[in-house]
Amino acid sequence: MASASQVDQIAERVERLLVRYEELQRTNALLVQQVELLTQERDSLRSRLQAARTRVDALLERLPDINPAA
């Protein structure tokens, strides 16, 4: 049978584990939020890049064809 000291030690370890678990839960929530923000930023940058590519392509289409005399 476990002595009172062992029970106290186990209870203390359980308490520390619960505190650590709560800390990890908070950290995880913050990381999830950060991933969501970064995903939104990435999507926005991709959209802006595609728009810029479209504008460059349109400008290139407007350039006259330059065929060197053969």
Rank of each mutant, 00 (worst) to 15 (best):
A69W: 02
V56K: 08
P68A: 08
L45D: 02
Q25Y: 03
L60C: 05
A58P: 03
L60G: 02
V19W: 09
L30V: 04
V19S: 04
V56E: 07
A70K: 12
A2M: 13
E41F: 05
T39L: 08
A29F: 12
Q40T: 13
E36V: 02
N67G: 00
R46I: 03
L30A: 11
A58E: 04
L17R: 02
D43L: 02
A70I: 04
L18F: 02
L38A: 13
Y21L: 10
R26E: 10
A11H: 10
D65A: 13
T54H: 02
D43I: 06
E23F: 02
T27H: 13
L30P: 00
V19C: 01
I66R: 14
D43S: 08
I10C: 02
D8K: 10
P64F: 06
R62D: 09
E23D: 15
N28S: 12
Q25T: 10
V7R: 12
A52E: 09
L31R: 14
V14Y: 07
A11D: 13
A29H: 12
L18M: 13
E41V: 03
P68F: 05
D57M: 04
Q25L: 08
L59N: 05
E12M: 14
T54W: 04
L38Y: 00
I66F: 11
R55V: 14
R16M: 05
D65P: 05
S47G: 07
E41N: 11
V35W: 00
N67A: 14
A51W: 03
A58N: 04
Q50S: 09
E15Y: 01
E41L: 05
Q33T: 10
R53E: 12
Y21S: 07
R62M: 09
S44R: 09
E61S: 02
D65M: 06
I10S: 00
P68K: 11
A69N: 02
E23Y: 03
A70T: 11
Q9H: 08
L17A: 10
A70E: 11
A58R: 05
L49W: 03
S5G: 03
I10N: 05
L17W: 04
V32C: 06
S5D: 02
R16D: 04
R42Q: 09
D8N: 08
E12F: 15
A4S: 15
A4M: 15
R16K: 13
A69F: 03
Q40N: 14
A4D: 15
L38H: 13
L63F: 03
A58V: 00
E36H: 06
Y21C: 06
L63K: 15
R20I: 01
R62I: 06
Q34G: 06
Q6A: 15
S47D: 11
A29K: 13
D57K: 01
R13G: 08
P64M: 06
A58K: 03
Q33V: 01
R55I: 11
D65F: 06
T54E: 02
R53P: 02
A51N: 00
E22K: 08
S44T: 05
D57Y: 01
D43N: 07
L30F: 04
A52Q: 10
Q50T: 09
E12R: 15
L17M: 00
R13S: 05
R48V: 13
E36C: 08
L37S: 14
D65T: 13
Y21T: 04
E15V: 10
I66P: 04
L31E: 13
R26S: 03
A51R: 01
N28G: 09
V19N: 01
T39Q: 06
R62S: 12
